[in-house]
């Protein structure tokens, strides 16, 4: 199938892109195109104008500073996956990226594009919740900073308003000696998750993030599971309690890929695996 016809603009600066979006309320920004292009090819969307962001070099790049890392929204997933500077504190992001589609889709697909699309089975939104990310959003009238917990609203819906663009993502440093885990089950490698879990823990920081995704409206922090880990001092019993809390909290529905009962069950299994990996990695970082 072929895309419908549209007017095409490919501005070289963010300011020009924001001005185009402000003047054309129904225009769609085009990032890496790994979600929007299939939607166009299927004619699920008929935007009168496409504002292509791919020529705006200022929107891509990874800058690590004292307070964390800023990832430009147009950074290709493949570039983030290979960025050695992320390995120490944000290895969770690198690990999750390997589950995002395939080499061919990651070399075009962008970090920000996946977040702004917010597919309920996508990995990156879950990672953003687990890492306490802050989304930096610009429009022709100003800048907003939106915490990940407020950004991902529901199925394919974010807090972005018409005329706004996600321009970068800020990830703070995780607490000292943090460990992370990511576990996913999909029908084939690279497919969207049937269920997945992203976990960050730090004993010293009394810190736990447990995010389940692939079900219902999309990624969610499971606060009961986080509390179970911290209160149970990251013991085996705490992991079992956290996994049970995840299974109870998620709300999958039956679909052609798997029945709801199965997803509920494996959501707990994925959470347990991710918790175990996170706690093992944390324990390996006790010196210093």
């Amino acid at each position: 199938m072929k895309p419908p016809s549209f007017a095409y603009r490919d501005p070289a600066t963010l300011e020009d892109a924001l001005a185009l979006l402000a003047a054309n309320a129904d225009a769609r920004p085009l990032a890496g195109g790994q979600s929007l292009m299939p939607m166009l090819n299927f004619r699920l969307v008929h935007p009168p104008m496409i504002v292509d962001l791919n020529r705006i070099s200022a929107l891509a790049g990874i800058v690590i500073g004292a307070d964390g890392v800023n990832i430009g929204a147009m950074t290709r997933q493949r570039d983030a996956e290979r960025h050695a500077g992320l390995a120490r504190d944000w290895a969770l992001l690198m690990e999750a990226l390997r589950h995002v589609g395939h080499i061919q889709t990651r070399s075009r697909g962008t970090v920000g594009g996946s977040l702004a699309h917010n597919d309920p089975a996508a990995e990156l939104p879950a990672v953003m919740l687990a890492l306490d990310a802050v989304m930096i959003v610009r429009s022709a009238v100003g800048t907003r900073k939106i915490a990940a917990t407020d950004f991902f609203v529901s199925l394919l819906t974010t807090a972005l308003k018409a005329g706004e663009l996600l321009v970068s993502i800020h990830l703070p440093h995780p607490p000292r000696h943090a460990g992370f885990g990511f576990a996913e089950i999909a029908r084939r490698h690279g497919d969207f998750a049937l269920a997945a879990a992203a976990v960050v823990v730090s004993r010293g920081g009394n810190h736990a993030r447990v995010v389940a995704t692939g079900m219902g409206e999309g990624p969610r922090r499971i606060l009961e599971a986080e509390a179970a880990l911290v209160e149970g001092k990251f013991s085996d019993a705490a992991i079992t309690a956290a996994a049970a809390a995840v299974s109870t909290a998620v709300e999958p529905v039956d679909d052609l890929h798997a029945p709801a009962w199965y997803r509920k069950k494996i959501a707990g299994v994925m959470a347990a695996r991710a918790c175990r990996d996170a706690i093992t990695r944390m324990a390996g970082q006790t010196n210093e």
Partner: peptide
């Protein structure tokens, strides 16, 4: 490597 059906 990229999918040419997903680019204009």
């Amino acid at each position: 490597p990229a999918r040419s059906c997903l680019m204009l």
